[in-house]
Amino acid sequence: MKSDLKSVGSRFSDGLIFQNPVTVLLLGMCPVMAVSVSVFNGIGMGLSATFVLIFSNTVISLLRKFIPENVRIAAYIVVIATFVTIVDMLLQAFFPQLSKSLGLFIPLIVVNCIILARAEAFARVNGVFNSALDGLAMGIGFTAALIAMSVVREALGAGTLLGVPVMPPGFRPALLMGLAPGGFITLGFIIAAMQWALNRRKRKGKL
């Protein structure tokens, strides 16, 4: 597989919309639903995962000729786990509140399917710059999905956005949105909206 010689711009539009890791590639849904209870948490998780994505893609691309085929998954996992732990320690030291809120899901970035999938599908066969760029684009897409989810869930579930009340005074928050079912249903509707938009585009394009 040759390197994708796509322009930087199209790589970003892929990461954000057309190949959005969460809503189109359907990867990494666990943390998206668990963490998107508040916009602050969503952004924090998105940025942490993006950091790990960029660095792991870069390192794996650098080492791609050095890692033998049959141990590549183990090698990827070691690299990813290292960067995740670094992020974990940095968050605990410099953003302790975020670290507590994200809790279990920071170490779980290791098994975030997005990172492993991009390492396997992209960083393994592409150059360092392209891989880093791909990491950034996918990370931004992931963060965008998180923000979309958490805006809906925080506004409807707690009446605030980033802690600031945004709903009219008579509004009684639907607490269910902040709990598990709210996560499932919001993601379901977002993916449905995405599929509808992409289908329309396909139909229009074909005409």
């Binding site: 080492l63 050095f66 890692i67 033998p68 049959n70 141990v71 183990a74 090698a75 070691v78 690299v79 786990a81 290292t82 732990t85 670094i86 320690m89 940095l90 605990q92 030291a93 410099f94």
Partner: peptide, 23 residues
């Protein structure tokens, strides 16, 4: 396999230890 995994894990361990000391 052994050599590449060993090198990768050693470098990772070193990086982690360094970050640990820092934080």
């Amino acid at each position: 396999m052994a050599l590449s995994l060993f090198v990768i894990t050693s470098v990772s361990a070193a990086l982690l230890a360094a970050t640990h000391i820092l934080t």
